[in-house]
Design a binder for these strands. Sequence first.
RNA 1: GCCUGCGUGGUGAAAUCGGUAAACACGUUGGAUUCAAAAUCCAAUGACGAAAGUCUUGUCGGUUCGAUUCCGACCGCAGGUACCA
Length: 823
Amino acid sequence: MENFLEYNAAKIEKNWQDYWDENKSFEPSEDFTKEKRYILSMFPFPSGRLHMGHVRNYTLSDAFARYHRQQGLNVLHPIGFDSFGMPAENAAIKNGADPKKWTYENIDYMKGEFKTLGFSFSKERELATSDELYTKFEQGFIIDMYEKGLLYRKKGLLNWCPHDKTVLANEQVVDGCCWRCDTPIEKKDMNQYYFKITQYGDELLADLEKLKGGWPHQVLTMQDNWIGKSNGLEFDLFFDADSKAKLNAQFESFDVFTTRPDTIYGVSYTALAPEHDIVSYMIEQNLLDAEVVAEIKKMKATSSIDRQKEKSGVSLGINVIHPLTQKMIPVWVANFVLMDYGSGAVMAVPAHDDRDYDFAKKYDLAIHGVIKPKDGELDLENSAFTDKGILFNSGEFDGLDSKKSQYNIIKYFEENKIGRKTTNYKLKDWGVSRQRYWGAPIPFVHCEDCGLVMEKKENLPIALPADVEITGEGNPLENHPTWKYCSCPKCGRDAVRETDTMDTFVESSWYFLRFCASPKNWEKEAFSKEQVAYWMQHGVDHYIGGIEHAILHLLYARFFTKVFRDLGYLDFDEPFDKLLTQGMVLKDGAKMSKSKGNTVDPDALIQKYGADTARLFILFAAPPTQELEWNDSGVEGSYKFIKRFFDRSSNVIACESIPIIKHETLSKEEKFARKKVYEAQVRANEVYNERYTFNTMIAGVMEAMNALNAQSNSDVWSEGYWILSSIMEPVIPHTCWEISSNYFHLKNLDKQVILEEVFIEDSIILGVSVNGKNRGEIEVATDATKESIIALAKEKVAKYLEAKEIVKEIVVPKKLVNIVVKG
RNA sequence: GCCUGCGUGGUGAAAUCGGUAAACACGUUGGAUUCAAAAUCCAAUGACGAAAGUCUUGUCGGUUCGAUUCCGACCGCAGGUACCA
């Protein structure tokens, strides 16, 4: 005969998963008068199977969602798939799979995994970003952004991955290599589409202030650095008459930017990037010696990482005039000057800048010190002096400190109209076009007569053709026999479709808004202002995902939110209120990866122990923001706890409301057990709302369990389980629903009332220390006077007080007594 | 180099406001149960020491009656970023 009380994870879990499906237990209400919580985890790429990082991510969001549902709030906890992208195409190249088929089969499999893990996602709002419906609305937004001038096309030097044969955004270049395949990138001159994210640079930076408190400090700093705002002086350097003649009067001057105007009297040369217009002109016009041209070409051909190895440069044989001293300054080309920052030209102050110093030493250029330390002597023998200090050899600015002189020098330049205060950013416009098949097509048409034309919105989506040949060479859309031929939406004549598709980061920049849309209007609109206003009030309440998205995805999503605001689609500035960045899942000290062979397969784990064990271990082993070291015996321990938790529920007497207990009639152990149970609830409330340290919450439940087990009052057991199985439901939902339906008719999975009476105690234990060193403890009545406490404490530690003079007696209420002695 | 974090038992970790360091687990050891094992239950477990006791939160110093917590310097680790002018 089957034992009713036997813990059978597989059976229990299957039962409740089916129950939740049948009852649509996790669909949000459309009653917008209710208080809401929007809990979102970063959606996965459908790579085929979930890995432990996913399990951690969704276990965390599921815990938040379930807790807030218990509190009676209207919870939106959606999931989708970020399903465009190269791996689908790579699978096609490798195995001849159809990218669409490959993607949607993976999605189906992963949905099955979500079910076996018991995640409480809304099913009705599930989406994949490769769905044509999603593409349709996205293409609409792209057209709006183009019309607003936020999307533009230009030729530019781009990061090109020769392996994947595609353009990469700066954000996708990691250490000079492709973020996906690790191939060193090359620079290529191509026509591309860009989002004008720099137009929002200042706002993206300033609004980081609004995110303080809700976002990890670390992420805010990373975004701040990425935007990289710096203030300084921009001015023109004019060529002298001879140089101008040499340049056929084609150039008068060039721009430079500096954040250290205080060092300007120390300029002894200037340097241009090898790609600078003036350099290109001189090469074209044969104004340079053959060996100089060869040197410059060599620099241009060197990758950005190799350029960092050693500074090199070459003199152009032309000069500019120093704007303040009127002295002649030689112009060089230098490999460390970047064409895409500032104006691609620098003023060089070798005395006060490390790079300029190294370069000057190598090529024997003059080094003029103009700043000296506030105390001590200026020593330029072996290195530059890069700190701020006091100016000298600086004309009328002599004797000023760096800070003051920066202000004065900029003012001087502005008054004399020879320069201006400027701000520079490291942030670049976001290049979004990709020469790839498996992405959302950019909905534009090239017409010989009309130029670049938007597709009409009623023709959207511009869907991908199904019959493509994917070889890995070039862009399959470009090579498709018919797809790209169309008629111009404006004049109707023959035209050609844009064959570039969009960066997949575009899809993830607005998916959280799509989830707000009511499934009833799913076909009609991307989302409505009203729906978004409700669900996004204060933003997504809890956004959970990996720290690896600290810059790219989070910056782009913030950018889109601001753009959508300016397009009138919504009325707020920031999408994510509270961000929780989870740590990586490690095994044997290394990130789990197939190549290292240290992965743990979630499916196998669930089969062996059940989903609840996996979920409990993940939340118990470490706080969410920390790295999680996988430990098989720790998993075993979590399983044992659940089993014990389930087995001991046999001490409970079935009831439909929480038992009423007369606290004062209880024994010491019974009182203690109740106190531990309610403490666990207090801690749980803190954890879900502020601290997110689920490990300590679970420890609290374990302590309460141990305390319950040390007594035998069945009312105390029942009350304890009423509360503990409610606390644990977000963590081990299947087990708790089983217990709850066995004993409580599912009525305890609800907001709990804290009974203060259980915290009232007759006596407390105080530590007693002498000179801060712990020497014992005393038990005193809660209302004991300070004098009586001190007297008792002195008695307790009498032997440490012998022949000593008592200097001070400190009583810290409810904590300890410290007696300070001398001699 | 610069910017963030982080350093606590054999292991994962806890200590929320400066107040008895190591909660809760894992592991280990011993015991009960068992023909035996698994499972379960009980007990011990920071280090040194027979004990009294001494020491212990990366190192050194400071503030304080009292520091894992605050301040300074250094060492180590992780993440981000980088000829950014």
